[in-house]
C-alpha cells in the first residue's frame, strides 16, 4: 500500500496526502477518519516533513515499530529513487538549449506556487488573528515584515529569526491575556 502511494503520488504533498487517506481510510479502513484528522493535526507541530511524520504515526497505529519501518521504506524508496533518477537525468541534459529554456519557466513557476502555498498556509492564522483583534493581526504583519528585513540583513541567522518571530507572537498574546484577566478581575 505504501509503495503504491509512493509511486503514484505525482503532484507534491497534497497529492500524497490524498493517496494516503484513500488507501488507509477510504479503501482499507485501517484508520478511521477521526484518527486520520487527529494525526494530521498533530504532525503540523512536528519538525521536518509532515507527511513523513504522518507515515510514522499511521505505521505505528497499524503495525507498531515494524509498521513504521514498512511505511517509510514503502513510501520513500520509490519516491527517492525516482527523484535521484530524474536529477541524474537532468544533470546530463541540463545544457541542452530547450531544457535550459524550460527550466527558466519552471523556476519562476516554482516560486509562484511557493508563494501561493505560503498564502494558503498563512490564511487561517491571519483570519484567526483578525478575529482576536486589530493588535494581534498587526503583530503578525509586523513579524512578517521584520523577518523580511532581518533575513536581508543577516541571511545566516534564520533559526534566530524564526524563534524571535515565535517569541514575539507568544509575548503579544501573553500580555493581551494578562490585561484581559486584570480587566475582568477589576470589574468583579
Amino acid at each position: 500500500m505504501w509503495t503504491a502511494v509512493g509511486i503514484q503520488s505525482f503532484g507534491g504533498g497534497s497529492a500524497t496526502l490524498a493517496l494516503i487517506r484513500k488507501a488507509f481510510v477510504d479503501s482499507s479502513g485501517l484508520v478511521t477518519p477521526e484518527e486520520f484528522s487527529r494525526d494530521w493535526g498533530l504532525v503540523q507541530i512536528a519538525p521536518g516533513i509532515n507527511l513523513f511524520a504522518l507515515t510514522i504515526l499511521i505505521g505505528r497505529r497499524t503495525g507498531g515499530a515494524a509498521g513504521i519501518a514498512v511505511g517509510l521504506i514503502g513510501l520513500l524508496t520509490p519516491s527517492i529513487a525516482a527523484t535521484i533518477v530524474l536529477t541524474a537525468l537532468y544533470a546530463h541534459i541540463a545544457q541542452v538549449p530547450w531544457v535550459h529554456a524550460a527550466l527558466r519557466g519552471i523556476v519562476p513557476a516554482t516560486v509562484g506556487i511557493g508563494i501561493a502555498m505560503g498564502i494558503q498556509t498563512l490564511a487561517p492564522s491571519a483570519s484567526e488573528a483578525k478575529r482576536e483583534g486589530v493588535f494581534p493581526l498587526l503583530t503578525c504583519i509586523a513579524i512578517l515584515l521584520a523577518a523580511v528585513l532581518a533575513e536581508r540583513a543577516a541571511p545566516t541567522a534564520v533559526v534566530f529569526i524564526l524563534i524571535a518571530g515565535g517569541l514575539l507572537g507568544a509575548c503579544e498574546t501573553a500580555i493581551r491575556l494578562r490585561r484581559s484577566e486584570s480587566k475582568s478581575e477589576g470589574t468583579q
Partner: peptide, 8 residues
C-alpha cells in the same frame, strides 16, 4: 508568530 516569520 513562527509561521509568519517563516513566511517573511
Amino acid at each position: 508568530g513562527l509561521n509568519f516569520a517563516l513566511a517573511g
